[in-house]
């Protein structure tokens, strides 16, 4: 896998993230309900946030060292 593929996957993840953190998806979770004692909206936001970080870390680290030279 080369760097350009990584870039493309990251851009796709960016688009997904922008979608997840925007209207109207966000409005679906804007309901007065607690899950595990935490408001659903908070849970959704922090959960998605963590998920994006994990995905980004996985994408960036998996080809580490293989192609550090390619521009």
């Amino acid at each position: 896998m080369n760097s350009s593929t990584t870039s493309q996957r990251l851009v796709a993840l960016f688009l997904l993230g922008a979608l997840a953190f925007g209207y109207p998806l966000l409005s679906l979770f804007s309901v007065p309900k607690l899950l595990f004692g935490v408001p659903l909206l908070y849970l959704y936001l922090f959960g998605t946030w963590l998920l994006i970080i994990v995905c980004a870390g996985w994408l960036l680290e998996r080809d580490h060292g293989n192609d550090s030279q390619t521009g």
Partner: peptide, 11 residues
């Protein structure tokens, strides 16, 4: 959240 998204474009 903005910087988190932007960080995806850093590379």
């Amino acid at each position: 959240l903005g910087p988190t998204l932007m960080a995806l474009l850093w590379w």
